[in-house]
């Protein structure tokens, strides 16, 4: 019974990042804090995807990233598939960085995160500009990207602490 409970607890802990990703996509929880500071907003989904795809790909699968993107599109009223493509771009950059780097540290992660943010936003802007009637304020996207980059070390620290409680499987 004790072993069963322990396994259950570990499974829940391992599912934590995935549950968080889905929850942020589906719920009303805002990562836009205009009431505190007009331009303050960040994209937590991108940070979650990047961290876990770099750290251990078995925690968040590509299929879940795709599904979280679809959910985000429906809730936000964006064209279907847009967020999925953007999130998968982040996942792609993370997988690439993982393939070409040996040591993982906060600073290497943080600076390569710029590439992930840049390409995911680039894809988003190109698709919206060419294939959608939605108008976007490009400065808002820039601020969002900037604060996402700025807060990444905090997300990294929290997840690093959290990952110590998890029993991670080796992924190849």
């Amino acid at each position: 019974m004790a072993i069963l409970f322990k396994n259950f607890r570990l499974n829940i802990l391992n599912l934590g990042p995935l549950i968080l990703l889905y929850y942020i996509s589906i719920s009303e929880i805002d990562t836009y804090f205009s009431s505190f500071f007009e331009i303050l907003s960040f994209n937590l989904q991108i940070a979650i995807i990047y961290y876990w795809m770099l750290k251990n790909q078995s925690v968040i699968g590509n299929g879940h990233i795709f599904l979280a993107g679809i959910i985000n599109d429906v809730v936000m009223g964006l064209p279907l598939g847009l967020s999925s493509i953007s999130y998968l771009t982040v996942s792609f950059v993370a997988s690439y960085v993982r393939n070409v780097t040996v040591n993982i540290s906060l600073f290497t992660d943080w600076f390569t995160f710029i590439l992930a943010i840049f390409f995911s936003n680039l894809v988003l802007v190109i698709l919206i500009y060419n294939f959608s009637a939605i108008k976007l304020q490009y400065t808002d996207i820039f601020y969002n990207a900037f604060f996402t980059f700025l807060f990444y070390p905090a997300v990294w620290g929290i997840f690093n602490f959290y990952s110590k409680m998890m029993v991670l499987k080796h992924d190849d």
Binding site: Q57, S58, G61, N62, G63, I65, F66, G69, I70, P79, L80, G81, L82, S84, I85, L88, S91, F92, S95, L127, F131, S132, K169, H170, D171, D172
Partner: peptide
């Protein structure tokens, strides 16, 4: 990989198809 059921390439294609079907 071990726990990935779909490759990124496959999901990119699916997302793009969905995007254009919606468009």
């Amino acid at each position: 990989g071990a726990r990935q059921k779909f490759s990124l390439f496959f999901l990119f294609i699916v997302s793009t198809i969905i995007f254009f079907l919606d468009f």
